[in-house]
């Protein structure tokens, strides 16, 4: 989550050079960080109860969304560099 916040702050540094498209990158990055922040308590609780029960379901949706956010940020970043 903190890495995403840091990346979103760095994206803002691009704003004077590349203009408004950077806000899309910032929104994706900060949005992913916010989603993690808002769901971390529920996920922590599920995991800690899972360890106690010795049964934890693999959180495939969270893994896929996180990977998708990284891919989307990279693709948008490349688009901005090529367009700029």
């Amino acid at each position: 989550m903190l890495a995403l916040v840091t990346a979103s702050a760095l994206f803002l540094r691009w704003l004077p050079n590349h203009g408004l498209p950077i806000l899309l990158l910032f929104t994706v990055s900060a949005g992913a960080a916010l989603a993690i922040y808002l769901t971390q308590r529920r996920r922590y609780s599920a995991r800690s109860h899972g360890v106690a029960r010795e049964h934890v379901d693999a959180d495939i949706t969270a893994v896929l969304w996180t990977a998708f956010a990284g891919i989307a940020l990279g693709a948008l970043g490349i688009g901005v560099v090529l367009a700029g």
Binding site: A3, L4, T6, A7, L10, F11, R13, W14, R47, G50, V51, E54, H55, V56, D57, A58, D59, V63, T66, A67, G70, L73, G74, G77, V81
Partner: peptide, 29 residues
């Protein structure tokens, strides 16, 4: 379903790679 500790360890490794990926994205910027 594997031992929950292994599932969680796999997830931690995934998150470590994601941090590396974000560092590279930030480095590119």
């Amino acid at each position: 379903e594997p031992d929950p500790r292994f599932t969680l360890a796999n997830e931690r490794t995934f998150l470590a790679w994601i941090r590396t990926s974000l560092a590279l994205l930030a480095g590119g910027i």
